[in-house]
C-alpha cells in the first residue's frame, strides 16, 4: 500500500530513531525530535518501536490511504480528522482504503508523529529512513514529503481500535518550560555574572527553531572573560578553534542568542559552548513552539542521570500498558 500525500503540511519528514555512527563525518543521527512520542505511536499500531513514521511540525499533512491500515498519532495536540470525523490522539484507529486523514490547527506542543501499521518502507540510507534534507539523505528521495508523493508502507496485521496510553504518561511543555542543563565544555569563557544571568533570565524560543537547533532570545547579552584569543580560533571572544559539538550543546555566537543543537546538529564548529541540555529533556525541546518561554535550570550529573532513569521508567510503563 501507499500513503498518497495530498497536502504535505509545513515541513513533514519521514523519521525513525536515527542513524548514529556517522557524526565523525558531519552526518548527524537525526530521527524523531520527540523520541518517546515516536516510540509510543509505533507501539500503538503494533510496529517495532523504531519503525519509520511521519513527523509533522506546526501543521499536519493531508493523506489518502490506498489500503486498510492501523494508525496512531502522538506528540503535540492537533485535532485529527478521518474523512472529516474527529479521532482521538494517542489512540489506535483503523483507516479504510480511500479514506483521507487530515488535521486541524495545532493546540499545544509542536510536532506530531503519525504511525501506520507496517511502517513507512522507503529505502534506508546508512541504516535509517530518517530524512536529512541538507545532505539529501534518507526520507523520500532525500527530502521532506511533497504533494503527489506516494510513500510505500510495509505490510502488517491490523491491531484492535482504541489501544491507548494513559494521559499521565504523556509529557507536554509547561509554562515556562524548564530545560535542565549540565554546565561544562567552554563554560569558563563566561564571566560569573553572565553565567548567573543565563540561568536567571527568561528566554523565548525564536522563529529560527528547527531540527538542527533551537535558538532562544530575550536574555541579557553575555560577557566573556578577557583573554588573548588562541591561535586559529578567530578574533571574536565567542570563537574557539573549531571542535566537536555535543547533541544538546548550547552555543552562543557573539554572546547574544543561545542555540541548542538538536537531532540534525552540525557536528562541529568554531563557537564556544557553555554546556548541554540533559538527554532527558531533549524530547521536550521538540515540542516547543516559537515564543514559548523557557528557563534553563542548572543541574549536576547525578540529577541528569536520575531524570534519564525517570524517562526510561515512563517508556517501560508505556510498554507494559500497551503490551
Amino acid at each position: 500500500m501507499t500513503l498518497n500525500i495530498v497536502k504535505p503540511g509545513l515541513a513533514t519528514s519521514i523519521q525513525d530513531l536515527g542513524r548514529p555512527g556517522y557524526f565523525h563525518l558531519g552526518i548527524p543521527e537525526g530521527g524523531a525530535m520527540d523520541r518517546l512520542a515516536l516510540r509510543a505511536a509505533n507501539m500503538l499500531v503494533g510496529n517495532p518501536e523504531g519503525a519509520a513514521c511521519l513527523e509533522a511540525v506546526f501543521m499536519g499533512p493531508e493523506i489518502t490511504f490506498t489500503a486498510e491500515a492501523s494508525v496512531a498519532i502522538t506528540g503535540g495536540e492537533m485535532p485529527i480528522l478521518l474523512d472529516g470525523v474527529t479521532k482521538e490522539s494517542w489512540t489506535s484507529f483503523t483507516v479504510k482504503p480511500g479514506q483521507t486523514l487530515s488535521f486541524g490547527f495545532l493546540k499545544s506542543g509542536a510536532r506530531i508523529y503519525i504511525a501506520v501499521s507496517g511502517g513507512i518502507a522507503t529505502e534506508p540510507a546508512l541504516g535509517s529512513r530518517s530524512t536529512y534534507p541538507i545532505g539529501a539523505l534518507g526520507g523520500f528521495h532525500g527530502r521532506n514529503i511533497a504533494a503527489g508523493d506516494e510513500l510505500p508502507v510495509g505490510t502488517a496485521p491490523l491491531v484492535e481500535e482504541g489501544r491507548s496510553t494513559p494521559a499521565e504518561l504523556r509529557r507536554g511543555p509547561g509554562s515556562p518550560t524548564e530545560l535542565r542543563v549540565l554546565t561544562g565544555l567552554y563554560w569558563y569563557r563566561l564571566t560569573e555574572a553572565s553565567g548567573q544571568n543565563f540561568f536567571n533570565d527568561t528566554w523565548t524560543v525564536a522563529p529560527e527553531a528547527d531540527r538542527m537547533g533551537y535558538r532562544f532570545r530575550g536574555g541579557q547579552p553575555m560577557e566573556f572573560v578577557e583573554r588573548e584569543q588562541p591561535f586559529g580560533a578567530g578574533a571574536d571572544p565567542s570563537n574557539i578553534v573549531d571542535g566537536c559539538y555535543s547533541y544538546g550543546s548550547i552555543q552562543v555566537p557573539g554572546g547574544s542568542e543561545p542555540i541548542v543543537l538538536h537531532r540534525d546538529a552540525v557536528s562541529g564548529g568554531g563557537y564556544f559552548t557553555l554546556g548541554a541540555v540533559i538527554s532527558a529533556d531533549m524530547d521536550l525541546i521538540g515540542q516547543l513552539q516559537p515564543n514559548t518561554q523557557v528557563k534553563f535550570i542548572k543541574v549536576e550529573m547525578e540529577e541528569a542521570l536520575q531524570a534519564r532513569a525517570e524517562r526510561k521508567a515512563v517508556l517501560e510503563m508505556m510498554r507494559k500498558y500497551i503490551g
Partner: peptide, 13 residues
Amino acid sequence: GGDEHIYVEVDEE
C-alpha cells in the same frame, strides 16, 4: 557535554 558526551580538548590553540 551533557550526560552522553565527553569532550577532550588537547590544546586550546
